[in-house]
């Protein structure tokens, strides 16, 4: 029930919520994990529930792995990058607080996506502006919560908040770049090891 009450608080009083989450014992890993799972489920359901007018893909064209991956991975890299950047530039947030409040910042998406998806079933192209306005409003809300999270958690001024956000995004790109690099190198190493094994097998 704590989760529900917190969620309502994020939607109604975001500043208050981000202050309170920093109190010892308020942020719980459990909540972050539940919200992440919910986020993935909602994202997939949203794709399949959206009316054909606005979602042209057939179900066989949607990959659960792909969709979940590109939802979770940016989120995780955001958390890591935000924590790393703010730790260097005297932010006050703890890693646990950042992760949990980032999960809570996705609440508008979790709560509103499915109603919008169901609503889109009865919308036609003539009302596409209605649909997209609501959709972008949800995204804006989430973005706003993320910004406020950075501001309140690390106790930054407005200008510094924007600067840190920019650096965080840059950090995300670097993390991805390094990730791809490591992926490629590990592939090479595995190939190399397999090659040597084969060679040894061949010689023996």
């Amino acid at each position: 029930m704590n989760l529900l009450r917190n969620s309502r608080k994020v939607l109604a009083h975001p500043f208050e919520f981000f202050y309170d989450i920093q109190v010892e014992g308020q942020a719980k890993w459990r909540h972050a994990i539940i919200l992440l799972v919910l986020m993935a489920i909602v994202h997939l359901l949203k794709i399949s529930w959206t009316g054909y007018t606005f979602e042209g893909r057939a179900s066989y064209q949607i990959s659960v792995v792909f969709e979940t991956f590109w939802l979770i991975v940016p989120w995780v890299t955001w958390c890591i990058s935000n924590w790393a950047v703010s730790a260097i530039l005297d932010g006050e947030g703890k890693f646990k607080d950042i992760v949990v409040s980032s999960a809570y910042a996705m609440i508008p998406y979790i709560v509103l996506s499915l109603p919008l998806a169901l609503f889109s079933q009865i919308l036609t192209f003539d009302e596409k502006y209605t649909y997209f306005t609501i959709l972008y409003a949800i995204y804006l809300w989430v973005a706003f919560l993320f910004l406020m999270k950075v501001k309140v958690l690390h106790d930054f001024q407005f200008g510094k908040m924007l600067w840190i956000t920019l650096l965080t995004l840059l950090g995300m790109l670097i993390i991805w770049f390094v990730g791809f690099l490591i992926f490629g190198l590990v592939n090479q190493v595995i190939d190399f090891v397999i090659g040597i094994m084969k060679e040894i097998q061949f010689r023996l």
Binding site: G51, Y52, T53, I122, F125
Partner: peptide, 18 residues
């Protein structure tokens, strides 16, 4: 129209069905 995968035609039919 959904089978033919033309979203515009689907939308038109939906409007009338509505």
């Amino acid at each position: 129209h959904k089978k033919s995968r033309v979203q515009v035609n689907y939308s038109t039919a939906l409007r009338e069905y509505r």
